[in-house]
Amino acid sequence: MDLQLLKKQEHQRRVRKGFMWALFCAILWGLWYIPGTVVWVLNPFDEMYAEIAATNGDGMSLIITAVLITAFNALTVILALMVWNGVLGKFGEMKRTLKEFNPCSKWFFLASIFGGPMAILGSFIAMGFVGGAFAAVAALMYPVVGSILASKWYGEKISKRAFAGIVFIIFGGITIFGGGLLTEIGAGNVVWIGYIGGLMAAVGWGIEGAIAGKGLDIAEPDVGLTLRFLGENIIWWVIAVPILAILGFPMFKYALMVFEPLTMLVLVFAGITFGFCYVTWYKSFPLIGVGRGQGIGNLYGLFAVVFIALFFGDIPDWTILVGGALCLIGSSIMFSEDTSQLESLRGE
């Protein structure tokens, strides 16, 4: 058997696996929008929103409620990840990695700061002060930040072709949310803080990916990701929620009211989809690189619209066809790239 041929096949399998993980990430991320949307109208979050809105206004209320929802999301994600790591028998490795603060866990805790408070909160600020479509479009920009950082910082190779694929997918996403975006910005009463939120989302997730890529060099993806969510849980439950409670917001009152069957079910569904979307995201990075992993992950915009249409019956605008086509072109450009370029992801 030809050795070079076998080597090429083995290498193609690796790249295929990387793209497959990234695609699963996009599907799960899109699925997450179902619980992520539903949870807002469930008790106790809808009551909480109404109570805070009455005194502090709608925008502020949205952000404070988002903190509690995100905190519960992080909590259910880490539960899902604990089960996952338990099944894979990785608790031992988790302990070993956690202890290595400087080379390993430092990066994952840093990733949690950028991915958690910065990106997620930024996304909610964009949603609260501009609108949902704007928040979605702003977040789509994160692979540009991620791939540029990974390339400048640790020399990750990103070919022109892969970058072209990322750009196509971004334009696809913008087209999908385009109508809503124009309506929101055209409404006229946009507050600048909403744009800052959008920027926080794009930059936050981009930086998270680049930092995670750095930590994943010498750590297990499943383990690294769990540490990243450990960090996020500490940020929300030990820092943010108590501080907001001290400032007088009814955080704990509503946190304790969350134990209703339907609310719990939706939160668990959110935890599973979000948790595994992140698992697949982190698993793709060492195989195809941060830039490509994030670029394909960006297909979540298309999947989110499709799933929301299927589950809620919201018929999307015709622009989804154009946007979806652009996304498909972008993904094909990346999938069909000659994989010998990807033998090693970094230039030496």
Partner: peptide, 13 residues
């Protein structure tokens, strides 16, 4: 697979 990841990230060749 850890070995494959390390090679893919250019820490091993």
């Amino acid at each position: 697979f850890d070995l494959i990841e390390l090679a893919s990230c250019s820490l091993l060749r």
